[in-house]
């Protein structure tokens, strides 16, 4: 840029730059809306609209087929909060989460630590342990169903070799145990996340701990664990939410028949989302089912908030997570 032009711009500062700045702002805004519009349209049509619709339905007694939608106010919510069936399903779901979340988090962390050690066949072991995570949930549930078959399954054959009586894995209270086994079996993805987290632990800190005479347990407790704690918090939230929403194993571990699938779900596996499914598609009570979904959303939100409140304190962030907040 020449001195002359610089001088000219100094003497005539007014309209042209304002127009230019305004044009830039408009261009920036158009670019912003252009880029977010696919997401925005998708969110409105596929998330906000269905959610709004479901909330509306929760105040009606709609049967899902006719155009008749009697307004019932808070009746459905009252039923959700007082129905012994729903509360029983909710308690089963919470028990399931109380078992699955710690077992999955601690199990995947322990296996990740083992697989992080230098040893022969490490890659093969990592592949084998991760394999269940890439098996589609439907296929996994069906494989386990064959394994747990009372009369011809592998599980009872092993028991027979040990001279033990056959167990009816898929019925009664054992159906709940079978579902837990299926859910825990697929902890491979947690292992991979933990393995990735373990790679991020600064080598110099581990080295320093070693030089200071810290043993493996002390190093793990005071160096490794704080370093990977944000990942563990993320996993805890994720596993809690997915476990609370358990549905596929409950459905697919149930024996089939020529009648409805749901009628064969064992009472022990009648978890919350199964109850919701029944209300929608067996009982045609779309209003009640929607109210159950809304209540469940609040429960999940509250649990997530509790996890953040109590576990968040123990999380060590290398970068201040509040940085940049006004």
């Amino acid at each position: 840029m020449s001195a002359l032009s610089l001088g000219a711009s100094r003497t005539r500062p007014a309209p042209a730059p304002r127009r230019g700045a305004r044009a830039r702002r408009i261009r920036a805004a158009l670019a912003f809306y252009g880029f977010i519009s696919p997401w925005l349209v998708g969110t409105i049509l596929l998330t906000a609209f269905p959610v709004g619709y479901a909330v509306y339905i929760s105040f009606t007694d709609w049967n899902g087929m006719t155009s008749f939608m009697p307004w019932v106010g808070l009746d459905n919510y009252r039923q959700v909060l007082t129905s012994s069936d729903t509360l029983s399903a909710l308690s089963k779901t919470l028990v399931l989460a109380a078992i699955i979340v710690p077992v999955s988090i601690l199990g995947s962390l322990a296996l990740a630590v083992l697989l992080n050690k230098r040893m022969h066949g490490r890659t093969v072991m990592r592949t084998l342990i991760y394999l269940p995570a890439v098996v589609p949930p439907v296929a996994a549930a069906l494989i386990w169903k064959v394994i747990f078959d009372k009369n011809s399954g592998a599980a009872n054959r092993i028991l027979a070799l040990l001279h033990l009586n056959a167990v009816s894995w898929l019925t009664g209270q054992m159906a709940f145990v079978a579902m837990i086994i299926v859910l825990v079996w697929a902890i491979g993805s947690g292992i991979i996340i933990n393995l990735a987290a373990l790679q991020t632990v600064p080598a110099e800190q581990l080295e320093a701990a070693k030089m200071d005479g810290a043993g493996p347990l002390t190093t793990f407790r005071h160096v490794t664990l704080p370093a990977i704690s944000p990942i563990l918090l993320f996993q805890t939230v994720l596993v809690t939410i997915t476990t609370l929403q358990t549905f596929i194993p409950a459905i697919l571990l149930s024996p089939i028949s020529d009648s409805s699938v749901v009628t064969n779900i064992q009472p022990a596996n009648d978890v919350y989302m199964v109850d919701v499914y029944e209300q929608y598609f067996d009982y045609s009570r779309y209003g009640l089912g929607s109210a159950m979904i809304v209540v469940f959303f609040v429960v999940i939100l509250a649990l997530t908030a509790l996890i953040f409140k109590f576990l968040g304190r123990s999380v060590f962030y290398a970068v201040d997570p509040t940085e940049g907040r006004s």
């Binding site: 409105i44 049509l45 998330t47 906000a48 609209f49 269905p50 619709y53 509306y56 006719t66 939608m69």
Partner: peptide
Amino acid sequence: GAGALAGSTAALPLLSACGGQV
């Protein structure tokens, strides 16, 4: 605004549905 739009759009078919009879 997007949320409000979605909410109001959701209500439109319902208003017409309320008049139905069985």
